[in-house]
Design a protein around this nucleic acid. Structure first.
Length: 596
RNA sequence: GGCCCCGUAGUUCAAUGGAUAGAACGGAAGUUUCCUAAACUUUAAAUAUAGGUUCGAUUCCUAUCGGGGCUACCA
């Protein structure tokens, strides 16, 4: 890439002119601001210590050196300490003709032997997926695509939290009030049926706690002594003891949940290479904990419970095994990490998990380190922000969530209404129309979620439906569809643009050059997004690309241009742009329609 | 109480320590005998407060104020 060359030559300039060694990474190279002439800018302020000259003089000297040693540089000018470099049209034309037919443009060659294991989704089988899970799933899937584009081998794994006290709560409520109803008898999606009982448990539990407090118990006592929670704990004990009846019900109810999840996953367009079940890893976790106790890195209290004491590392004591011998979340996560490492020997293990679990992952890494597991250093928690509603946080227990299936239904409906209003579905068959509504609706939803920096909390207001205009998924899709329509017209007008050869000497108009520059930036976008683990970087790039193209398309005629070379050039730019929009959208897991 | 994260236009989001803080939606005003107006153009509007470090701070540090999370023998 030209950036590398610019950095290296700048170092040479500093060496030749001022006699100092400079690390290429230390060169302040950036894209030139929009209002200023130039393609790349070198900030020379940090170099003044070496040059011992004024900013202007330093920039001018380096600029002169670069121009002499790099044919790609056509001219330069200096504003204060900013050295603005203008690359030649020839450079941009060469880039365009070399890469526009390269299907792998922007993607890095595989360069890693060991894979990356990427965990995302991680549902609990006691309730259906909600908007928070949607963010998780979309982030996970998109990150996998981005890492692959960076040349990594990615194993997508899902860890199903299929056991634990929370599952027992749903089971207990079902046993008490379920009347043997099933997804079949109720017509409810399996995960929704189970969610109903989870909410029911919590409602009744709350009442019990309330009553006990009335009778004079403290809140803590009431929460621990309420009959429902005591019963749920008994069920967990029975389950860990493999009581046949308990295990049967557990299997039946989890089966319903899986059926429901499958439908949601398929609709979201996400998938996994390997599914781990907590019920299959918690025993390994227990084993590790017992081993840690023998090693002397854990402590056992009088009641038999086992803890990690992390106080000397700035954390607290953490329970790893309950007094009754049953395991907790951390227990199974220790086992899962070990199993995953044994299965794949990955170079890193990335966990896409919400930032409310930052502490959990701190502890996980530290405990594994105490066990002497070197892979603990390669555990990476991609801690994404919560999706908040105007009223605050979503709570499954209280049923105040934006349900994933409902939201997707709404997106489909809105897409259908809008498309019909615009009269764009008129010429489509029912099947094609339905496909288009799905593409647009899901595109709007996915882009809305992914354009936000993963680390930040984001707000979703259900009252204001997700937009289809402006910086949105449908905006990109529209730009793509319009380009396809243009290319079809070019074909029927007889332009053989696919085999055409364009003279590299063609001079470029500013809008043409800007359009090519944006295409060039696809490469660094992929790298940055991969380094930062951020689909938002791809989304921001996409908007810039599409917005800029629409401007180009508005201002300059393509097929109606008189100069035949210009027609070919602009078809090339259009076709390359369409290509990159599609690729970028794929990195986000979003489809593009050929027409809309 | 302790620990962590976040405060940018009316709203939702941008900005590797760099030039005049960008967009979108919403507001105001325009562009269709012209390659798809889900588009394009113009316009008003913001860095919570006070210090500090720096040639330069939305970005780093400290304090204050405001919001969120964690601090469970829940996951």
């Amino acid at each position: 890439m030209i950036e590398t060359k610019l950095r290296e030559r700048t170092c040479e300039a500093v060496k030749t002119l001022y006699g100092h060694e400079l690390n290429p990474g230390a060169v302040g190279l950036e894209k030139t601001n929009r209002e200023i002439t130039g393609d790349f800018t070198i900030v020379v302020f940090p170099l003044l210590k070496l040059s011992r000259k004024s900013p202007e003089a330093t920039a001018t000297e380096i600029g002169t050196f670069l121009q002499q040693h790099m044919p790609e540089i056509e001219s330069f000018h200096v504003i204060k300490g900013f050295l603005n470099l203008v690359l030649s049209d020839h450079f941009w034309m060469k880039f365009l003709s070399k890469n526009m037919v390269n299907p792998d443009f922007g993607f890095l060659k595989s360069r890693h032997e060991r894979p990356v294991v990427l965990e995302y989704s991680s549902p609990n089988t006691n309730k259906p997926l909600h908007l928070g899970h949607i963010r998780n799933n979309l982030l996970g899937f998109s990150l996998a695509e981005i890492l692959k584009a960076n040349g990594h081998k990615v194993i997508k794994v899902n860890l199903v939290n299929d056991r634990g006290i929370h599952i027992c709560k749903s089971m207990l409520a079902y046993m008490k009030w379920g009347n043997n109803e099933t997804p079949g008898t109720t017509g409810l999606k399996g995960d929704h049926l189970i969610g109903k009982y989870y909410v029911l448990f919590n409602k009744n539990y709350k009442t019990e706690v309330h009553d006990l407090i009335e009778k004079g118990l403290t809140e803590e006592e009431a929460e621990r002594q309420a009959p429902l929670i005591v019963e749920a704990q008994e069920i967990l004990l029975k389950w860990e003891a493999k009581d046949p009846e308990t295990v049967d019900l557990w299997k039946r109810m989890n089966g319903w949940a899986y059926d429901g999840f499958d439908v949601t996953y398929r609709r979201l367009g996400v998938d996994f290479d390997h599914i781990y079940y907590e019920s299959e890893t918690y025993l390994l976790g227990k084993y590790l904990v017992m081993g840690g106790l023998e090693q002397g890195v854990l402590v056992q209290k009088e009641d038999g419970s086992i803890w990690a004491d992390l106080k000397d590392e700035g954390l607290d004591e953490k329970l790893l095994l309950r007094a009754d011998g049953t395991s907790v979340y951390m227990t199974q996560d220790l086992g899962t990490a070990q199993l995953r490492f044994d299965d794949y020997h990955p170079s890193s293990m990335i966990y896409v998990v919400g930032n409310e679990q930052n502490y959990h992952f701190d502890v996980l890494k530290k405990v594994l380190a105490r066990f002497g597991k070197e892979y603990s250093e390669h555990i990476l928690h991609l801690s994404y922000g919560m999706v908040e509603l105007p009223q605050g946080k979503m709570k499954s227990r209280e049923g105040t969530v934006v349900d994933a299936d409902d939201l997707m239904d709404e997106m489909y409906q809105t897409a259908e209404e809008t498309t019909r209003e615009l009269g764009k579905a008129n010429e489509l068959s029912d099947d094609d129309a339905a496909g288009l509504f799905k593409t647009i609706g899901m595109g709007a939803l996915k882009y809305f979620i992914l354009k936000v920096d993963p680390k930040k909390n984001m707000l979703f207001d259900p009252a204001e439906s997700i937009d289809f205009n402006g910086n949105t998924g449908p905006f990109m899709q529209y730009t793509y569809a319009r380009i396809q329509s243009l290319l079809a017209r070019a074909g029927s007008a007889g332009y053989l643009w696919e085999d055409a050869v364009l003279p590299v000497q063609t001079p470029l108009l500013p809008l043409e050059k800007e359009a090519i520059k944006r295409l060039y930036q696809f490469q660094e976008t992929i790298i940055t997004a991969g380094d930062e683990l951020s689909p938002a970087i791809v989304a921001n790039y996409l908007f810039d690309l599409a917005k800029g193209f629409n401007q180009f398309y508005q201002e300059l005629p393509v097929l109606k241009e008189a100069d035949q070379q210009k027609v070919l050039l602009r078809i090339w730019i259009s076709r390359f742009t369409g290509d990159i929009i599609k690729k970028s959208m794929k990195l986000l897991g979003i489809e593009v329609p050929e027409r809309m």
